[in-house]
């Protein structure tokens, strides 16, 4: 084990996978000399050269599309988007091309492509640079979606993503890059997709959150403990595939569910979780599940406004109390 930041964990896995497989390469804006604006490719051009750590023009549609094409032609590209908000500039190449190419061609194509970058609140980047978009990409069959909440998951999930023969969208969180965590040194350390992690066991209420909301759910759990509510906190880790079983099993035990995410509440993935839990554990539920997410409003710049739009730790606590009739 080594204690590393989330950003370093990502960088190390990219380097290890590039050493292991010469078909792996990275393209993105400002990833050579600058090493990406969050340092996820820092100094890698020195070892791998600028053929494999490749600066692109500011052309997201072409970058992602070129990733799809290079993957079809036998490479394993990693496309770094400076902000995952720019997936929207490249949306056709992701949704109509990457996600569908294999299926439309009757299974002929294989697209081992990773599209990665950061998203979310925390740096005053305002409406077009602070969104949480994992939820919209879950809607389109054909792409896998990963959301690491700590450095170890970032390492393990990224390695799995790079080795996967399908397109993977890898959503990092800007507020997590500096956070440190013990990361296994094993160069084959992989976290499987579709396997949620129980971050804290508890018997009274199940709280599901991802990315930044794993630590916020844990903070809420610590608050709840003070008033005698024992919360179980689950991090799904990947959105596609989604490990609904672990959550359903937990709800069968606790009888109560709170799902929280930074993405907008409306049509957010939390609604899907509630729906599946109602389907799979209806008779175990003691209270109507609560789904928390960002208000139906773009992310504002002012920090007090930004905080007002996304769910707070206090709201998670209140929701848990409510389902526990407290």
């Amino acid at each position: 084990m080594s204690k590393k930041t989330y950003a370093t964990a990502i960088r190390d896995v990219i380097a290890e996978e590039m050493r292991r497989d010469e078909n792996v390469f990275v393209m993105g804006e400002d990833i050579e000399l600058l090493g990406g604006i969050f340092g996820c490719t820092r100094d890698l051009y020195k070892e791998f050269g600028t053929d494999r750590i490749r600066n692109t023009p500011i052309s997201e549609a072409a970058m992602v599309g070129a990733g799809v094409g290079a993957a079809c032609a036998g490479m394993r590209p990693i496309v770094e988007l400076m902000y995952m908000d720019f997936t929207l500039v490249a949306a056709d190449q992701i949704i109509n091309q990457a996600a569908k190419t294999r299926y439309i061609f009757g299974g002929k194509a294989k697209i081992p492509l990773v599209i990665r970058g950061q998203q979310g609140i925390g740096r005053g980047n305002a409406a077009t640079h602070s969104q949480s978009l994992e939820t919209i990409f879950m809607h389109f069959p054909g792409i896998k979606v990963a959301c690491p909440s700590n450095a170890a998951d970032a390492a393990g999930l990224l390695r799995t993503a790079i080795r996967d023969d399908n397109p993977v969208m890898f959503f990092e969180h800007k507020a997590l890059y500096a956070s440190k965590f013990e990361v296994p040194d094993d160069p084959d350390f992989c976290v499987p997709f579709g396997k949620a992690e129980i971050k804290r066991t508890g018997k009274d209420v199940t709280i599901v959150g991802s990315l930044l909301y794993v630590s916020r759910a844990l903070e809420a759990a610590a608050e709840l403990e003070k008033i005698g509510i024992d919360a179980e906190v689950i991090d799904p880790r990947t959105m596609v595939p989604f490990d609904m079983d672990t959550i359903i099993e937990s709800v069968k035990k606790t009888g109560k569910l709170v799902v929280v995410h930074e993405a907008h509440k409306v049509a957010g993935w939390g609604a899907e979780v509630v729906s599946e839990v109602v389907d799979g554990a209806f008779k175990y539920l003691d209270a109507a599940p609560i789904h928390l997410g960002a208000k139906a409003c773009p992310l504002p710049f002012n920090i007090e406004l930004e905080n007002a739009v996304v769910p707070s730790v206090q709201q998670i606590v209140e929701a848990a109390k409510k389902v526990c009739y407290r």
Binding site: I58, D85, F86, V89, G124, N125, A126, A127, T128, H129, P298, P300, F301, N302, L305
Partner: peptide, 27 residues
């Protein structure tokens, strides 16, 4: 100009024909 909603990258004043700064390159 935008009631604190937007910060540096989004100043707009439609009364002056300024349809806005834009944080999306090329936007």
């Amino acid at each position: 100009y935008c009631k604190g909603r937007s910060g540096s990258m989004h100043i707009a004043d439609f009364t002056k024909g300024n349809l806005g700064a834009n944080a999306i390159v090329g936007g």
